[in-house]
Design a protein around this nucleic acid. Structure first.
Lengths: 171, 171
DNA sequence: TAGGTTTGTTTCAAACTTGAACCAAGCTAG
DNA sequence: CTAGCTTGGTTCAAGTTTGAAACAAACCTA
């Protein structure tokens, strides 16, 4: 089958996507590295835990929530544990499992860093989009998520963490 | 000033964005690692060079086109050079400069790998978006790019590589 | 209930990224 | 010219990511 190349419109969209994601990740990483001494992913881990019931989540659930590999998470949690922001407990019901728990210091750290992070997300993104575009972005991204893993496609991506509160540190 | 938290709609969009970008980068990296033995960024470097006049670009231009740091590029080009896909030449006009040139092997490699990559981009993304959404995605991403660096905002992001041809390997 | 598979997690080495420091080479104002 | 700033690029060490392999507990299933 002969390759279905991208149309010019798709090429433009794709190039813009690549550029935007690189710039945005860089910006978030730098801001958080400055302000909290950790890359964006690590903050996301803390933020996600902070919104989970009892501030605890099984490693695998956490990895799935953030769409990262287990091994990447293992490394990250090990570092955060060294920093005293997270601790591991072993799962009572499944002795194979381990649970990441946000410590008090971790909670404090998220709360301290959240405003700066949210501000950066706003300044980089949402302050420049109108309501409609926010909806479009969600629709597009949800579609991507489904196409790449939600074959079962039951839950509208994001609803897999249904306990989130209003003023969230927003990962 | 009290933090302007994200609205629920923005939170949903943001979570979907994070998930989508992680999944998509993972997918592209894995496909290219399988099929071409290199991560996505490295393919993008080759692809970008393949569309440049004479298949050559100054290091800094290349870094700017891809929105990555110079040092990241230096490392990547060093590897690609070892693989014989790119070679460095020194710039005639500015003796500080060095120019990355796509070798014949590099050109062949892009051509070999392009169909699989484009197919993956399609399958993950464009096949699930309608024309309108492609436009929306471009608009949104262009906005991000401008907000993060195009303060001068003259060229509509992407047009900084105006020599691109139709059936492109699409970085 | 022993053996085999699956699931949850970690480990390890190799590859990659980061940021600060460095080295030229160009530029510019005395 | 020329000391001092800027620009183009690389280097290095420390930190992170990857993917495959290792383990161990849980779950079959005959």
């Amino acid at each position: 089958m002969t390759t279905r190349w991208l149309t010019p419109e798709e090429q433009r969209a794709w190039r813009a996507y690549i550029a935007a994601t690189h710039l945005l990740e860089d910006t978030l990483d730098r801001q958080l590295q400055q302000d909290a001494g950790m890359p964006h992913l690590y903050y996301s881990i803390l933020a996600t835990l902070s919104e989970a019931p009892e501030r605890r989540l099984r490693m695998t659930e956490l990895a799935e929530a953030l769409k990262i590999t287990r091994s990447r998470l293992t490394y990250a949690v090990t570092r955060l544990e060294k920093d005293g922001l997270v601790r591991r407990e072993s799962c009572r019901w499944d002795r194979r499992g381990s649970v990441a728990v946000l410590s008090d210091a971790g909670t404090a750290e998220v709360e301290r860093a959240a405003p700066g992070h949210v501000e950066t997300v706003r300044a980089s993104l949402f302050d420049h989009l109108d309501e409609e575009q926010v909806g479009q972005l969600e629709a597009i991204c949800t579609t991507i998520v489904r196409s790449l893993q939600g074959e079962d496609a039951s839950t509208p991506a994001g609803d897999d963490l249904p306990w989130r509160r209003r003023s969230s540190p927003c990962s």
